[in-house]
Simulated scan of single mutants.
Amino acid sequence: MTTLPPHFVDVLSDRLAEYSGQDVLAIRPGVRSAGGALADRVADLMLDDVRRHVGDADPEYLSARRRLVQAVGPELQTVVSGTGTGVQQLQHARADAERVFALAVDVADPVALAAGAPRAVTAQRAARITVARGQLQGLREDRMPSAEQVGEWLDAVERDPAVLVERVGPALLRAAGDFGYEPRTSTRSDVQTLRDGVARAWVRQRLPDFAAALGRPMEPGDVEQLRYDFQGGIADGLVRSISERTGRSPDELLDRLCQAADPVMLPGDDQWVTARTLLVSAEALTAVDEDLRHRAGWEITWAMQDEFKRHYGNLDRPSELTLEEVGAAIAEAGATTAAGWGVQVTGPRDPGLDAAMNAATVPTTGRPSATAGHGHRSTARAVQSRGPQGSERG
């Protein structure tokens, strides 16, 4: 065997140390000096956990070691010093090392998992937890379940899949902002309804993927056991309508709305502002004269809230529309009000959306004077509410 490039040896040693859990400083000299026995050295390091778990004479271990040597040996023969600049040679050596290591992993991983080797099982569990948490990125950072919490759920679900609906679902609903609001008076809160509805729609959308990442796909009908009610239906309709108008995916819209929910319900909750911003961006509002732009934004937001109240502000006057139709009507009210100001809804390639979303979380001043003559307002004002920082509406 020709002398291997030093950088190849260093990178391969790093990967072998990470995989085996051994000290790279102890591994590197043996890799450098292995010569023609390097394939055997790679096999011994990568299968050491299996060997200690099942014993030197185990047939599966011996077979895996032989196959790993046969896979890696010929590849090592093709490794030569690269040409070009020093940087290009380093890149070539690194690519060769990563390629050889990947071939070894393809042989070692299935064997280690099948044998129940401790390091392999632990690594698989950690990877599964990481993938599962990745399905929950729509949650606010301060309400994201920790790796430890997801690990507890993983263990519980492996023992009893029913835990998904009985424990995990409700926990995610709370994390997403569902406080179980149920009206006790003659009016329904548009802020609390949207907050709970987005949370319920978001969990119904995300929980199946989360469950699959945990390795326990949900059974048919499981998701129907989660809290949903009219709040979730309206949120679904609103998101779908905004998606159809803007070209943005419903998943992304739900994530944005979920992140905007105020978990402690402070005055000035900006989830409705976020819904308006997803429909009509701050950049689109630049079509309005600067001195009236602030008012135009709030008029669009209030029109969306008023449309909700028109259908669900009074328990004695049920809506004639389906839940999703109400959600769509809310988006329509916002778009219609925007058009009255000469503003178009957000397009799928609107470069100002991300900046607008960040700006939407900053409290603004109160409602402009009702004597301003530009634009128009919905006349449905059956319920008074407050704008940011306690400014009166109505």
Rank of each mutant, 00 (worst) to 15 (best):
T2Q: 10
L4G: 00
L4T: 01
P5A: 02
S13F: 14
S13E: 01
D14G: 15
I27H: 13
S33V: 10
G35A: 09
G36A: 15
A39W: 10
D40W: 04
R41M: 11
D48I: 03
D56T: 00
E60H: 03
S63E: 06
R65N: 00
G73M: 08
G73R: 13
E75G: 09
Q77G: 10
T78D: 12
V80P: 02
T85I: 10
Q89V: 15
L90G: 06
R94Q: 13
A97N: 00
V100A: 13
A102Y: 12
D106F: 00
D106S: 10
D109L: 12
P110S: 08
A112T: 10
L113K: 05
P118V: 11
R119K: 02
A123S: 04
A123G: 04
R125V: 03
A126E: 07
A127F: 01
I129T: 07
T130Y: 01
Q137M: 14
G138I: 07
L139A: 09
P145S: 05
S146F: 05
E152K: 09
E152I: 14
D155F: 00
R167K: 08
R167L: 02
R167H: 04
V168Q: 02
D178E: 12
G180C: 04
G180R: 07
Y181G: 10
P183T: 02
G197P: 08
V198N: 13
R206E: 13
L207Y: 03
F210W: 01
G215R: 07
P217H: 14
M218T: 06
E219T: 14
V223T: 15
V223K: 15
E224A: 15
A235T: 02
D236R: 15
T246N: 05
L253A: 06
L254C: 05
A260S: 10
D262S: 06
P263F: 04
M265C: 05
P267A: 07
G268V: 09
D270T: 05
L285A: 08
E290A: 08
D291F: 03
R293D: 12
R293T: 12
A296Y: 15
W298T: 15
W302M: 15
A303G: 12
K309E: 06
R310N: 07
N314L: 11
T322P: 14
L323V: 11
I330R: 00
E332L: 13
A333Y: 11
A335L: 03
G340R: 07
R349V: 07
L353N: 09
D354F: 08
D354V: 13
D354W: 08
A356S: 12
A356D: 09
A356Q: 08
N358M: 09
T365N: 14
S378W: 04
T379L: 11
A380E: 13
R381K: 11
V383A: 04
G387K: 03
G390K: 06
G390Y: 05
S391F: 03
